[in-house]
Amino acid sequence: MTAPIRVLICDDQVLVRTGLVTIIDAQPDLEVAGECGDGEAAVDLAGRLRPDVVLMDVRMPVLDGIEATRRLAGARVPRPAKVLVLTTFNLDTYVYEALRAGAAGFLLKDAPPAQLLHGIRTVAAGAALLDPEVTRQLVGRYAARIRPVDGAPRDIPLTPRELDVLRLLATGLSNSEIAADLQLSHETVKTFVSRILTKLDLRDRVQAVIYAYRQGLVT
């Protein structure tokens, strides 16, 4: 039997943690490795427990979720953790910084349980997860911050079709949605995404989104 995916829950609201524990522990392939209510404790527990996925709230006492994510999953961390940030629309000002800090993705706190569970499994498998609605909010409000000042695309080593896929990916579309839009198969889109990440030396879809906006590929 495959070992269950171990999840560390970090949220300063006890009721939220209790709900997450209930949802996760009810799944045969998931288990709660631990829980805590502030970012400093999250960093400590993650170091000791080595969970497969860290569910991270953004606004917490002692150390906020963004800095905790940076310490767990930043570019200079030897063994980065897989951090899934939970956010709400009124906290979307923090989403971009969380992604820059190294988060593997983000979901809304009021996402249905099935979507949350899918997110945990997706991140545990090594893929990034972008909630489309939050991505659109992020893009609409912060595109000017992410794009280069001159707004001019640089020399990008991608084919025209790969650029099409990257532009759609940057708006928060899933592989299936991209496939439908470009009239391609799901597997073909998956291959394109893999090539894009390899050519641009990007870790995951999260970095691809930030890259696309910094290069001025999406308006």
Rank of each mutant, 00 (worst) to 15 (best):
203 R>D: 13
172 G>A: 07
51 P>Y: 03
31 E>C: 07
175 N>I: 08
202 L>I: 02
133 E>R: 09
137 Q>F: 13
163 L>K: 09
217 L>P: 08
155 D>M: 05
55 L>F: 09
104 A>K: 03
157 P>Q: 13
154 R>L: 07
138 L>C: 12
112 P>D: 01
169 L>T: 03
80 P>L: 07
7 V>Y: 03
35 E>I: 05
129 L>C: 05
139 V>L: 11
143 A>Q: 09
106 F>C: 15
87 T>G: 06
119 G>S: 02
32 V>D: 04
193 V>N: 01
212 A>V: 01
45 L>F: 11
88 T>E: 03
28 P>L: 05
140 G>V: 02
138 L>M: 15
217 L>A: 04
12 D>P: 04
211 Y>N: 00
147 R>P: 03
195 R>E: 07
167 R>A: 08
219 T>C: 05
79 R>D: 15
152 A>H: 10
70 R>M: 03
110 D>W: 00
141 R>S: 10
79 R>N: 13
54 V>M: 00
187 E>W: 06
12 D>W: 00
45 L>Q: 15
213 Y>N: 09
66 I>C: 05
73 A>I: 01
25 D>T: 11
108 L>I: 10
168 L>A: 12
85 V>Q: 09
26 A>L: 07
59 R>I: 03
64 D>H: 04
83 V>E: 15
95 V>T: 03
117 L>S: 02
69 T>R: 02
214 R>Q: 14
52 D>Q: 03
153 P>H: 04
206 V>Y: 06
173 L>K: 15
128 A>I: 01
175 N>P: 15
204 D>K: 14
79 R>Q: 13
180 A>S: 11
163 L>W: 00
108 L>T: 05
148 P>Y: 15
176 S>P: 00
154 R>S: 12
139 V>W: 09
67 E>K: 08
101 A>R: 04
216 G>Q: 02
122 T>D: 11
72 L>E: 13
15 L>Q: 06
69 T>H: 09
57 D>G: 06
44 D>A: 15
48 R>T: 11
59 R>L: 12
99 L>P: 01
161 R>M: 07
37 G>C: 09
141 R>D: 11
218 V>M: 08
178 I>Q: 08
25 D>K: 09
84 L>D: 08
109 K>F: 07
155 D>H: 13
23 I>C: 08
48 R>L: 07
213 Y>M: 06
219 T>E: 12
125 A>T: 02
43 V>M: 12
145 R>L: 11
96 Y>C: 11
128 A>D: 13
60 M>L: 07
5 I>N: 13
18 T>N: 11
32 V>M: 05
123 V>S: 08
202 L>H: 08
112 P>E: 01
138 L>T: 04
179 A>D: 02
175 N>Y: 10
217 L>R: 03
134 V>F: 06
5 I>H: 14
144 A>V: 15
207 Q>T: 03
84 L>S: 12
91 L>D: 15
162 E>T: 06
44 D>P: 04
128 A>Q: 00
62 V>W: 00
74 G>M: 06
28 P>W: 07
87 T>R: 00
129 L>R: 13
167 R>S: 09
206 V>M: 06
200 L>R: 04
144 A>R: 11
154 R>N: 06
149 V>I: 13
48 R>C: 04
